[in-house]
Computed example of a mutant assay.
Amino acid sequence: MDLKAKITATGGFVPTNRRTNNYLANITDTSNEWIIKRTGIKERRILADELATSDMIVPAIEDLMKNTDMSLQEIDCLIVATCTPDMPMPSTANIVCRKLGLKNVFGFDINSACTGFLYAISLGASLIESRKYRNVIVAGADKMSSVTDLQDRRTNILFGDGAGAVLLQLSDDETGIQDSLLCGNGDGAEMLLIEGGGSLYPASMETLGSRKHFIRQDGRAVFRNAIEKMTAVSKALLDKNALSIDNVDWLIPHQANMRIIEAVGKELGIDAGRVISNVQYYGNTTAATIPLCLWDYKDKFQKGDLLLLTAFGAGFTWGATLLKWGM
């Protein structure tokens, strides 16, 4: 039997401050009813201005460690999926290591936006399966409030802040990450992006004045592509493993908005009661959405349940992962 990497612990963190629909209705031309109808989101968690993405990952990992019998010093790899790093360099993973007192850890960031956690957990699983690393933490975290333009009602209603983390270890049974399909093409680069702050548009008075440091998206294009690609890659992954949607106990789609979540579930033909969602209370936390769902619903899953995770993000990037729950 080929041993696989499995999730043996989860952790999560969301800020206490809430940004409600009514608050947004007071500053832009929108309403609570319109936001709920279009997105299903009721509120988002917002991190304090003086704090950064690493300040959410640290408590998420601390929460995770409470559910293990090991020490932090046994962690030998940390992968952080984020598109809102604390700073361009050093990596947020490095900053987290320092804050947690981790020494000699293989730590790095990966930026695939909303698909980041699936990319990262696939990499983490490969490191475990190679036997080179024993205890890998994969964190998905984003402080989306730091790149959200409060005056843009197309995006200010969508995004929130949060962090989720999982511990990967070698499975001693058939549970764990079964397979993944991960994709990207770059064709949607202009449809969902943050232009400013990189080498193409470094920070300047011009980039600040043109608000290039905020997220921008073509909502209709993103909506259409998200449904099409998450559905297609999920079906392809099931076909590859000679499975049908009837074999899946739980579908966990990226928490972009409720209409996308419901549409993907309908296209795949899975009962609505088996589709996991918490977007109502957190909004779109980008790389954190799927690990926050795993954290929120860990007590609902039974050992041996088959979970289908799927995501879509800027780039475009998209993917799906089959996970047999092992906790």
Rank of each mutant, 00 (worst) to 15 (best):
V138W: 03
W318Y: 15
S180F: 15
A226I: 08
V136M: 09
R220T: 15
G124W: 10
A320F: 04
F117K: 01
L308P: 04
C83K: 00
N247F: 02
D179L: 14
T155F: 01
L238W: 03
K300L: 13
S244F: 02
M144Q: 03
R259A: 12
A221C: 04
F117W: 05
A9F: 03
E206I: 05
A163S: 14
V166I: 14
Q169C: 13
D161C: 03
L322F: 09
V138S: 01
T28I: 13
Q169V: 15
K6E: 11
T321M: 09
R153F: 04
G197V: 13
L168F: 08
I157W: 00
S112I: 14
H213E: 15
L170G: 06
L251E: 14
G184N: 13
G269F: 09
G11E: 09
T84N: 06
G326P: 03
L170T: 13
V14I: 14
K266V: 09
T175W: 00
A25F: 04
I177Q: 11
D29F: 11
D55T: 05
S130A: 15
N26S: 13
G162C: 06
R38E: 08
M1D: 00
A311N: 07
L268G: 05
L78S: 03
D152Y: 11
Y133N: 01
N257C: 03
K99V: 03
M89T: 07
L237Y: 05
N94V: 04
I261A: 01
K298A: 04
K235N: 13
R216V: 12
G101T: 11
A256N: 06
T317D: 05
D86N: 03
I7K: 08
L47Q: 08
E174M: 11
P202C: 08
Q169S: 15
K42T: 10
A113Q: 01
R153T: 12
C77R: 04
T285E: 00
L158D: 01
M230P: 06
G283Q: 01
D218S: 07
A52F: 14
K132R: 15
I75M: 04
Q280R: 09
L238D: 13
L118M: 09
Y282F: 09
L268S: 04
Q302R: 13
F117D: 07
S130N: 09
I36P: 05
A93V: 02
I137V: 14
A60F: 08
L268N: 06
D142Q: 00
D172T: 10
A81E: 04
V138A: 00
G273P: 05
D161F: 01
A163G: 08
K143I: 08
C293F: 07
P88C: 07
W325K: 07
I110T: 05
Y297D: 03
V147K: 02
I215F: 09
R274C: 14
Q302A: 12
L78Q: 03
